[in-house]
């Protein structure tokens, strides 16, 4: 299938005080906006400019943290405008080198179910579970339908943040096939660690237990954040997900959940990871074909 190309408005450059420059690529989420941010932030990273403290890509925007004693924010904005005009849209032959990862999820698990039942008074639909509500408002006949939609095509990590290691994931499908749900009417004071959550058009895995406003659909047996760095996938970093990672959420049953948990506890668990490359332009033109290839590489 093909999709209509989304035209981005001109980028908006804003000063977040003297230490941050915030660049909004679009007010709406789209893969086009995320890829444009990827193009500029990747190019900026390669320039290694003195005074750039951190480069933070986000969904349809990005942010650069600077040390204004070394770099005038206005000079940075000039450089970002230059990058926008030279690399600001990914060229059609741009190849994204990243990794595709299998992320198992137990949907309708007992732990998030117990939690969501405690917070029904903060939900749009107190008489349904979060998954039942999501299925209904997205036009699915059953919970299985919405689970199938979320697990059939992979997702791309478009932003990390809120708390360390939390991946915001956007599904690699056209906008009309995206699932959308609102956040809780009032945020919960509790969310179990490793909850698979959903808000707006974004899927997340909560790295740690804490407050949260996203709908709760299930639980991942494997962590995205490991402070002790005891698992091999965390040897270099306490956070597993990286921006641009492609994650495939795969529905599992309780037996596999428990088997994976015991591997995690023994310290032997490893994510299934494959190096992959694809052209974002091809993905936008024919997402189903690219997604098939990505999954084929992952499970080969």
């Amino acid at each position: 299938m093909t999709t209509e190309k989304i035209q981005l408005p001109p980028a908006r450059y804003e000063y977040g005080g003297d230490e941050f420059v915030f660049v909004e690529l679009d007010q709406a989420m789209s893969l086009e906006a995320n890829f444009a941010g990827m193009a500029v932030t990747n190019a900026l990273r390669q320039e290694v400019i003195d005074g750039v403290v951190d480069i933070c890509p986000s969904n349809a925007s990005y942010m650069v943290q600077i040390d204004p004693d070394r770099l005038d924010p206005r000079e940075l904005v000039e450089e970002l405008r230059r990058l926008e005009s030279t690399v600001g849209t990914l060229p059609d032959d741009y190849v994204l080198k990243t990794r595709v990862v299998d992320v198992p999820v137990l949907f309708n698990d007992p732990w998030t179910h117990e939690t969501l039942m405690r917070f029904r008074d903060r939900h749009q639909d107190p008489d349904a579970t979060d998954l039942e509500y999501a299925a209904r408002i997205n036009g699915f006949d059953s919970v299985q339908g919405v689970v199938d939609a979320m697990t059939s095509a992979p997702w791309i990590v478009t932003m990390l943040g809120f708390v360390p290691g939390l991946p915001f994931c956007y599904q690699l499908v056209p906008r009309q096939r995206q699932i959308q749900v609102p956040k809780y009417v009032r945020p919960r004071t509790d969310t179990p660690e490793r909850t698979f959550g959903f808000g707006g058009a974004f899927a997340v895995v909560y790295p740690v237990r804490g407050a949260g406003g996203y709908q709760m659909f299930g639980m991942a047996p494997a962590p995205v954040f490991d402070l002790s760095q005891s698992l091999p996938d965390f040897a270099d970093d306490i956070c597993f997900p990286k921006a641009n990672d492609v994650l495939r959420y795969r529905a599992i049953d309780m037996a596999e959940f428990e088997a994976t948990r015991s591997e995690v506890e023994k310290g032997t668990f490893r994510y299934r990871i494959r190096e992959v490359e694809f052209e974002p332009a091809t993905l936008l033109a024919d997402p189903d074909a690219v997604n098939r290839e990505l999954l084929e590489v992952l499970y080969r």
């Binding site: 977040g16 005080g17 230490e19 941050f20 915030f22 909004e24 679009d26 007010q27 709406a28 989420m29 789209s30 933070c56 986000s58 969904n59 349809a60 925007s61 990005y62 942010m63 943290q65 932003m159 943040g161 809120f162 915001f168 956007y170 906008r175 995206q178 959308q180 609102p182 956040k183 808000g199 707006g200 058009a201 974004f202």
Partner: peptide, 18 residues
């Protein structure tokens, strides 16, 4: 806008400067 959520204070999730 698409992906922002329904509350008027909501935007598509973005970075917060300190």
């Amino acid at each position: 806008p698409f992906g922002a959520g329904s509350d008027p204070a909501n935007v598509v999730d973005l970075g917060y400067p300190i």
